Amino acid sequence: MFDPTIYDNLKVVFEGAMYDMDLDGSVQIIQRTDRVELSSMSRCFGMEAVRRQKGLVIGRIMLTASLADLAAELLSQPDEQPGCGLELTFIFPIREVEPDCAFAAKQMIDIWGDKVSVAQSIHMEYGKQPLKLENHLTIQFSRKLDERQIDDIPSLLEHFLLSLERLDQHFFTE
């Protein structure tokens, strides 16, 4: 038997909460990723979902832990803060880069507050007509998560669902 790490505990809670949202009909899980990168000894767990009703925006939750995070936890290093990184990504089509990206950024700051980092990258397939632009909006949290934030996961997932709703309402009703 082994003592589960911070990453293991958070992964189980996120996974269970996401599947609960799928069971209650809020979202449909469309992808699940669970990786161990042997070259860097890092771990990554992610789930992608869309809203069940009129959901076209893809939302992704990605939990990560590096070797340094694991070492800090297992070796109880006093100068290091063990924990996991959390990143959320929302993928949706846009028509006009400047106004659409500005709108999406404002919505995310309204929902998540100004303590998160919001980055957007625009993707397109070269040579494909008509030109289709896809926004990959990423939210990164400035601090690491640990077991002290487990009780915050339901609230975080409510914000995740609200983000999906707002982006769906704006980008798919026009």
Rank of each mutant, 00 (worst) to 15 (best):
S163W: 03
K144Q: 04
T64F: 00
K115V: 04
P154G: 03
T33F: 03
V27T: 05
I94G: 04
I29R: 10
P82H: 03
I122D: 01
T173C: 13
I94F: 01
A119F: 10
M18L: 13
S26Q: 06
S26D: 09
M108K: 02
L86G: 10
A17W: 11
T138F: 06
E165N: 11
S117Y: 12
R43T: 05
P99Y: 06
E174K: 12
M108H: 04
I58G: 03
S76R: 02
K115C: 07
R51V: 02
M47K: 03
L63Q: 03
F141P: 03
K54P: 00
D22R: 11
L75F: 11
Q31L: 12
D69F: 01
S39F: 08
T33R: 15
D22N: 15
A105Y: 11
S163R: 03
K128E: 03
R166K: 15
T173R: 06
L162C: 06
P99W: 05
G55L: 02
D114P: 14
A49R: 05
P130M: 02
T89C: 12
R143S: 01
Q149M: 07
E87I: 05
L70S: 13
L75S: 11
W112P: 08
N135W: 00
F45M: 04
G16Y: 01
Q107L: 05
L56A: 10
H136K: 12
W112C: 06
E73T: 03
I122M: 07
I139P: 02
T138Q: 10
D114M: 15
C44H: 08
R52S: 06
I6K: 00
E125W: 12
R148H: 07
I153M: 03
R143G: 02
E80K: 14
M41T: 14
V50L: 08
P4V: 00
E96N: 13
F171M: 02
V118F: 08
I109M: 15
A71V: 04
Q169L: 13
L133K: 15
C44M: 11
I94V: 06
L38D: 05
P78H: 09
L137C: 13
W112G: 07
S26T: 09
M1K: 12
I150D: 01
E134H: 09
P154W: 01
Y7V: 00
D24G: 10
G113I: 00
Q107T: 06
M108C: 05
E125K: 15
L63S: 01
S39R: 13
F14P: 05
P78R: 07
D79E: 15
S66R: 06
D151S: 15
M21D: 02
Y19R: 14
G127N: 08
S117W: 08
G113H: 11
G127C: 02
P93W: 10
V50W: 01
H170V: 08
D114L: 14
V13K: 12
A68H: 00
M108P: 03
L63V: 00
G16F: 02
D100C: 06
E174N: 13
L133V: 05
M47F: 04
E125R: 15
Y19C: 01
R35E: 11
R35M: 10
M124F: 14
C101T: 04
M108L: 14
M62K: 15
H136T: 05
I6A: 01
K132D: 15
Q140K: 13
D24P: 10
W112S: 09
A49K: 04
L133S: 06
E80P: 10
D114I: 13
